[in-house]
Design a protein around this nucleic acid. Structure first.
Lengths: 337, 337
DNA sequence: TTGTAGGCGTTATCAA
DNA sequence: TTGATAACGCCTACAA
């Protein structure tokens, strides 16, 4: 493998001059520059990235922590982040924590070992106290998930507001017994959703409104189980708020298999506006998050911190959701405005 | 940031000895070892990864090239690969080429610049001649996609056989006018699928069988367009072979919106057995690939090459598909065997 | 405008 | 069993 030294020798110049050419620095005669470029081509020279990193103490790489990439929400998030980062010449390392506290900590080590310059946490399950020390090694931005009292910039949607609105919608459609279905590890985000749900019940609800709480539903299969659980144990339930389009899809799928009519027998709300929510029969009412915008903002803030250290940024960037009303909840005829 | 030197000083020993402890080498008294570990903890020392890489010429990282991670097939593939790689202490870098020849080449540079030790290509759109030179910098394994005449190990399914079988199935269900719908860049894989399709027509077909070819369908939206194209221009078509569950879903979705009955008016076959193919109404007949097994095998071969250079491996590992027959093609009553 | 020389943090070689 | 020393390949004061 050719090194900068080889190039220098072949071009009859010094390493310094070659380095200047590599890094596009001034003070090199055009003629010598050409000679060097020629030599680089002849040797198939490429700068060694480890050496550069060691010398410059920068990797031009950021890590994004998320639970799993097969979840389309995170898939889309990372795609946008990568696009944005590469505009600035930064690479992205995808770190799937699989909801493991240990893996999360392991990946944060990338910061300490200088394998990445900064980290975006799209999920966070350890206590902030355990994460905070890593800030010494580089900037961290939280995106999607959020925690109170953290000193780092946080980019997220108002999940409480979103679930409030979705729940209200269910009630407006005449649902009187709404189940709350969630899953995955507890986090601030999920608890905010829960709060929005409860507030909506309280604000609009009569004492008659009942509430079934399921906290183990994550995917389509779980959704199917949820349906049977409702059917067998809580058949009076007439509306479901879920934190995931996949769970919603599972419920709806199984409901049709069992001749329940959606939304008449059961109205269902999903979350994330994944493709599946549009394709289901009936299509699924869901909450759309501005994924791309959040991704861009998170990357932007992180890179700004890397490029202009010391600058201060607002701690919170809150984005708006959009409730997409589809057939899985349309129990009432639309009234004319 | 503490360095090995700091640890050595604090422990009153030399860098060498500290390095031995870090790398679990013999010839260190238990007592000194403890002293060093103590010192490392006190200082919060972590070895600098760039320095290690520079010195050892190994990164313990591999790159996986694929078109886009939002495609569930590749999402699952990468997930399994990462799992397998991490068992061996290797990291995975996800490289989305977005079907760009340039990006593919850019990512291959990771090999040259020593940012990764090896590469798995889950897609390949440049000519092999352009890729081959990179072999000098490290091993490459091709997975999913495949090319004839390459000297590297290749892990894949027999797409020709799969599409042959799927097409045969359509004909057995009484389809006489089958459209072939594909999309994305041409590759050996897609041409194999095409061949299987054609062979099935030839083997079983009468001269009456017609064939509509569409090569621009990639996602759900395209599938919707395909439906309208068929409806308006080729209404006699009664069967569709698609290379993607998403396209199939789009066709089916739009068909129901237009009161076509699936599979009676149009039988549809998808590919990949994605969740959506099961949830659609009707459920979609599809081809399942043994993603996990292929992923594991590809990683295994690559790591073996890294750990035991020079060993030779079979050039090809071919896995079997499974045709999952669902409602989108069941035009005939099942006969009793 | 060009070159010299030192060091980034590790690990490998060799000597003690 | 331990330590001194020389790389790994690059960048950057500083000197010329």
């Amino acid at each position: 493998m050719a090194t900068i030294e080889d190039v220098a020798k072949l071009a009859g110049l010094s390493r310094t001059t070659v380095s200047r050419v590599i890094n596009d620095q001034p003070y090199v005669t055009e003629e010598k520059k050409q000679r060097i470029i020629q030599a680089m081509n002849d040797l198939g020279y490429v700068p060694n990235s480890s050496a550069r990193r060691l010398r410059s103490q920068r990797t031009e790489t950021i890590a994004v922590l998320l639970p799993r990439i097969t979840n389309p929400f995170f898939g889309n998030l990372i795609e946008s982040m990568e696009e944005k980062a590469s505009e600035w010449g930064y690479q992205v390392i995808v770190c799937q924590t699989h909801d493991s506290e240990k893996k999360e900590m392991d990946y944060l080590q990338l910061l300490k070992t200088k394998q990445v310059d900064g980290v975006i946490m799209a999920s966070i399950i350890n206590n902030w106290d355990d994460v905070e020390p890593y800030l010494e090694s580089g900037p961290i931005v939280v995106c999607n998930e959020y925690m109170e009292g953290t000193p780092v910039p946080t980019v997220h949607m108002d999940h409480k507001k979103a679930s409030y609105e979705a729940t209200l919608h269910l009630m407006e459609q005449g649902c009187n017994h709404i189940a709350y279905v969630s899953g995955g590890p507890n986090s601030h985000l999920t608890s905010q959703r829960r709060k929005g749900f409860e507030e909506a019940l309280k604000d609009k609800g009569t004492t008659k409104i009942e509430d079934l709480n399921i906290d183990w539903a994550l995917d389509v299969k779980d959704g199917q189980k949820v349906f049977h659980f409702i059917k067998e144990n809580h058949p009076y339930i007439d509306g479901v708020f879920t934190g995931s389009d996949e769970v919603a899809a599972g419920i709806i799928y199984e409901a049709s298999q069992n001749d329940w009519e959606i939304p008449h027998d059961l109205a269902v709300v999903g979350f994330d506006n994944q493709m599946i929510s549009l394709l289901m029969v009936p299509s699924v009412t869901t909450v759309e998050q501005p994924v791309k915008q959040m991704a861009n903002k998170a990357v932007e803030i992180l890179l700004q911190q890397l490029l202009h250290p010391g600058t201060h940024y607002p701690r919170e960037y809150v984005f708006d959701h959009e409730l997409l009303i589809r057939n899985s909840t349309k129990r009432r005829k639309l009234s004319v405005h």
